[in-house]
Each structure stands twice: as structure tokens, then as C-alpha cells.
């Protein structure tokens, strides 16, 4: 783990992209980081219950990805998804209220941490069954191709899901039918507590694309630049009608698998090594070194995000729980479905 990230160790080189793009990445990553830190705090206060998997450490993927896609593209992912949803356009208020289980949440308190959905943002959800979203993503792409659009579906999963049979079935059909799907493995090195090395003879997960003739490559996921570039290239390939592309984005989660995981299966050194190349820290430095913003500008951004997250908590606190009778809604589209007593 970490080899790709090591090779691309940050240098104080001249920024490659515009000031606007760097600031957009920075704000996006910072919002996710602060949101997740607050979520953990709220979990500690038992305002949030159930499972809660946070995205801290992986923010550069969302930031880089969203600037390389259009809003008409679709995304489906797994349950470590607060950051992905925020990147799509789910507001911090809608997201926090959902974590609190409130009726103002993005899915009205019906999904919680694992299941945000937003049709208006083409966000097809956080999926709780490891790997099940992989064929679903192929199906979302199938529908885009069927209708003759130029949109693609980004289908995201972790390194653990890469070991599910569903991946192979979906890869095979997506490639055979040249579906417009960008498969992204967010490889954070651990399937819950089990490292990639312990579950497979092949640890370069992107090479699984080779078995299906699917173009694939590893990507440094600790910098928005590298993610942005890789996704732009892959998306161009997909939109030209050549079928799917597979990116293994190497990243790291700073926290345990979920809030109840102390992550004793890894060393402090490993974690600190990653924190040294923290995407937010590095991007901030790049912005300042490149004179794209002043310290004062950065502080202003930080204050703005802090306020957004605080307002999200306040909104969630002040919202009501959904009425229990809502149980009988949205199991069926049919409104007069005769439920059993």
C-alpha cells in the first residue's frame, strides 16, 4: 500500500490548474472533512445511531471526481458515502438531518448513514450490501446507452467489494455490451479489518480489468489533481462509445471502518505516513505557495465551512423525527397497497 502515493510525493511545483479549480477542490475537501468530524462528534453524543462510516482521508477522490464529471452523469456507491453525496450536491443540512434520522433528511430519515439518495443530483445511492451496487451501476449505464445519451455512470466500490462475484459478472457484461460505466475502486487498503494482501494473490486490483479487456490503471487518490486527470481521461474514453474503464484509486481512511472500530490492525506509522500527505494540507499549501489565495482568504473559507457545518447540526437538531406511520409509505408505489395487520 501507498507505493503510488509515495511516487507522487508532493513537490512545491508550479500549480497545473486554475486558481478557481484549486479553491473548489479545497472547499469541497474541507467541507467533507469538517462534516465528518462533526458527524463523529455527534455520534459520540448519541445524536447519530446505527452504523456510521466516515470518509476522512478519502476526500480528494470526491473533489477531483466531481470536477471531471457533469451533473447529468450518474453516481452509485457503497455505504461510506457521506462525502460522495455532498460532492454530488446533497446539502450539509440534508445530510446531517439524515444522520440524525430526521424528517428533513435527504431521504426523510429512512436511510441513515448508509443510504443517501438524490434523484435531482443523479445520485443513485449509498448501498449497504458490499459489491451489490456494481451490477446496479452497470444497469444505470445500460439505461443511459439505451436512451442514447452521452452520460456515464460512475460505479464506486471499496477494495473489499472487489472480491465479490458481482464485480466479475458486471465487468463482463459491461465490457461485452460496451456500457458507459466508469468503475472506481476506492482502495483504502482495508476491507473492514482485513488488508488487501491478506485476501488476494493479486494486490494490484486494477489488473482485474485485464481479464475482461477493460482498460484500467492505478491512480494516486491523495491528490485531487491526479484523480481529476485520471477521470477526465477515462470519461473521454467512455463517452467515445468504447465502453467501460476501471480506475483503482489508492487512498486511505484515517479512521476505523466504522465508529466502533479502533483500527488495531494497522500501525501508527502507516497512518502518520498518510497524514503527512493529507490532501487538504497539501492543497492548502499549494494554494498558498502558488499565491492563489492569502492566509486571510483561507481563514475565510475555513470560517465559512465551519459555519455551514454548525448550521447543519442546528438544522438537524431542530428538525422533527418522521411520524412512525410513515412506515407504510414508499414500500410500494401503489398507494392503496393492502398491508397485512
Amino acid at each position: 500500500m501507498g507505493k503510488v502515493a509515495d511516487k507522487n510525493k508532493t513537490k512545491a511545483s508550479k500549480p497545473k490548474y486554475s486558481k478557481e479549480l484549486y479553491l473548489q477542490w479545497y472547499e469541497q475537501m474541507l467541507l467533507i472533512r469538517r462534516f465528518e468530524e462533526k458527524a463523529l462528534m455527534m455520534y459520540g453524543q448519541q445524536k447519530i445511531r446505527g452504523f456510521c462510516h466516515v470518509y476522512i482521508g478519502q476526500e480528494a477522490i470526491t473533489a477531483g471526481m466531481e470536477t471531471a464529471l457533469t451533473k447529468d452523469d450518474c453516481i452509485v456507491t457503497a455505504y461510506r458515502q457521506h462525502g460522495t453525496a455532498l460532492g454530488r450536491g446533497v446539502t450539509p443540512k440534508e445530510a446531517m438531518a439524515e444522520l440524525f434520522g430526521k424528517e428533513t433528511g435527504i431521504v426523510g430519515g429512512k436511510g441513515g448513514s448508509m443510504h443517501f439518495f438524490s434523484k435531482e443530483n443523479n445520485y443513485f445511492g449509498g448501498n449497504g450490501i458490499v459489491g451489490a451496487q456494481i451490477p446496479i451501476g452497470a444497469g444505470i449505464g445500460f439505461a443511459e446507452k439505451y436512451r442514447g445519451t452521452k452520460n456515464l455512470c460512475v460505479t464506486m466500490f471499496g477494495d473489499g467489494a472487489a472480491r465479490q462475484g458481482a464485480l466479475h459478472e458486471a465487468f463482463n457484461m459491461a465490457m461485452t455490451w460496451k456500457l458507459p460505466v466508469l468503475f472506481i475502486c476506492e482502495n483504502n487498503g482495508y476491507a473492514m479489518g482485513t488488508s488487501v494482501e491478506r485476501t488476494s494473490n493479486v494486490i494490484d486490483l486494477h489488473r482485474m480489468g485485464d481479464g475482461y479487456g477493460m482498460p484500467n490503471e492505478p491512480v494516486d487518490g491523495m491528490q485531487p489533481e491526479t484523480v481529476y486527470e485520471a477521470i477526465q481521461k477515462a470519461a473521454k474514453h467512455i463517452r467515445s462509445g468504447k465502453g467501460p474503464y476501471f480506475l483503482e484509486i489508492k487512498t486511505y481512511r484515517y479512521k476505523g471502518h466504522s465508529v466502533s472500530d479502533p483500527a488495531k490492525y494497522r500501525t501508527k506509522d502507516e497512518l502518520n505516513d498518510y497524514k503527512d500527505k493529507d490532501p487538504i494540507k497539501v492543497t492548502e499549501k499549494r494554494i498558498l505557495d502558488g499565491k492563489m489565495a492569502t492566509e486571510a482568504d483561507i481563514k475565510k473559507i475555513k470560517d465559512k465551512i465551519k459555519k455551514m457545518v454548525e448550521e447543519a447540526v442546528e438544522f438537524a437538531e431542530n428538525s422533527d423525527y418522521p411520524d412512525g406511520s410513515g412506515l407504510y409509505e414508499d414500500n410500494y408505489v401503489q398507494t392503496d397497497y393492502p398491508y397485512l395487520e
Binding site: P135, A138, G139, F142, C153, E169
Partner: peptide
């Protein structure tokens, strides 16, 4: 062949593709 489609023997996979297609309007 756009609308009548032979699949490989992969029930989990093509059922999932169906679900994704249905979620996306088909």
C-alpha cells in the same frame, strides 16, 4: 438485439443490471 438481450450465465449480475436500469427509468 437492443431490446431482446442474451446474457451470460450470471443471474446476480443481470438481475442487478435490471435493477439499475429500472432505477434509471427503463
Amino acid at each position: 438485439e437492443k431490446r431482446v438481450i442474451d446474457t451470460p450465465i450470471a443471474e446476480l449480475g443481470f438481475a442487478g443490471i435490471g435493477v439499475g436500469a429500472a432505477m434509471n427509468g427503463l
